[in-house]
Simulated assay, not measured.
Amino acid sequence: MPIKLPSDLPAYDVLTHEGVMVMAEEQAARQDIRPLRIGLLNLMPKKIDTETQFARLIGATPLQIELTLIRMTEHETRNTAPAHMEAFYRPFQDVKNEFFDGLIITGAPIEHLPFQEVTYWDELVEIMDWTQTHVHSTFGVCWGGMAMIHHFHGVQKHMLEAKAFGCFRHQNLTPASPYLRGFSDEFVIPVSRWTEIRQDEVDAAGLTTLLGSEDVGPCLIEDAAHKALYIFNHFEYDSDTLKGEYDRDVAAGTQINVPMNYYPGDDPARPPQNRWRSHAHLLYGNWVNQMYQTTPFDITQIAHGTSR
């Protein structure tokens, strides 16, 4: 089954060209089935790139997905055309009375700021609390995951001396987890951040670490009590996303290392290789499947904590 997207959303044409099954809203309306409702709270500046990356992953399962693009209510983006935001995004205050099977909260390039100094922090706190009564499963990604683990457990983010930048080897720490079905024992994941979450603080919070790295620390955390997963690295990245970040910093004269273990021979003149795509599809496919197996058919029952 395909992912349901507006036919004029840029991701529709991109994913159709890639062979991902997509369905226009008018087609989906003719199917007698309840799709999984997944919201994407997109905090990234390049919103079109980000929405395409996540739509690609959650649209690769056999289930019909209805993707709702959500933005912060008052925050104005400076990197995406207002017409695009007006056409495809709904402010949180307009969806807060609705229910979702899943919600993805993306990262944001504001790692250097204390959480309470982020201009939309108060509304984000409202959203995180809202997930406990209106969302069956929430996936916090990079800064979004750090914000959630801080809000619910007081776990701090810590500044790194140098940016963790490149493709780092990770270990499968909990092979029996339903979110890790099909995972290898070791694999690489793109990393791009100036902050870290520390394993001892995760352990002290009583949370389960599913994926981790000896080089860049915990990666994927399960928070069963809050119906959430937190991932601090970027399975969703395209093959050339790290290259785009590196080229941008080089052009701006910013001090930046060549992303580790990314270019063949660590040579930026050579095309980067994608060695994480299959595990990206496994993780998000497992998340969607687990959601489908446990979410109530009557979506309003999420408010009562009901599962199948």
Rank of each mutant, 00 (worst) to 15 (best):
P2C: 02
K4N: 12
L5I: 07
D8G: 05
D8C: 04
V14K: 08
H17L: 12
G19Y: 05
G19K: 08
V20G: 03
M23Y: 07
M23D: 07
A24C: 13
A24D: 15
E25D: 09
R30L: 09
Q31T: 08
R34D: 06
L41D: 00
M44H: 03
M44T: 09
D49S: 09
E51I: 11
A55W: 01
R56E: 14
R56D: 14
E66S: 12
R71V: 04
M72L: 13
R78A: 12
R78Q: 11
A81K: 06
A87C: 00
F88H: 09
R90D: 02
N97Q: 11
E98T: 05
F99W: 06
I105G: 04
P109R: 10
I110Y: 13
I110G: 06
L113H: 12
F115C: 04
T119F: 00
Y120F: 15
E123V: 07
E123H: 14
E126T: 13
E126Q: 15
I127F: 07
H134T: 03
V135P: 02
V135G: 00
V135I: 04
F139N: 02
G140R: 04
M146N: 02
A147K: 06
H150N: 15
H150A: 12
H153N: 10
G154L: 00
Q156D: 15
L160A: 08
A164D: 14
F165C: 07
F168P: 03
R169C: 14
H170M: 13
P178V: 14
Y179M: 08
S184C: 11
D185V: 10
V188K: 07
V188F: 06
P190Y: 04
S192V: 13
S192L: 14
R193V: 13
W194F: 15
T195R: 08
E196L: 06
R198F: 02
V202E: 01
D203G: 00
A204G: 03
T209N: 04
T209C: 00
S213D: 08
D215P: 03
P218K: 13
P218F: 08
C219T: 12
E222R: 09
E222N: 08
D223T: 03
A224T: 11
A224P: 07
A224M: 08
A225F: 03
H226Y: 05
K227S: 10
F232I: 07
F235P: 11
Y237H: 11
S239I: 12
T241K: 03
K243V: 08
R248V: 10
V250K: 14
T254H: 10
I256N: 01
P259V: 04
N261Y: 03
G265Y: 06
G265V: 08
D266P: 12
P268I: 09
A269T: 14
P271I: 01
P271K: 01
R277T: 15
Y284I: 02
W287P: 01
W287M: 07
N289C: 00
T300C: 08
G305Y: 02
S307F: 02
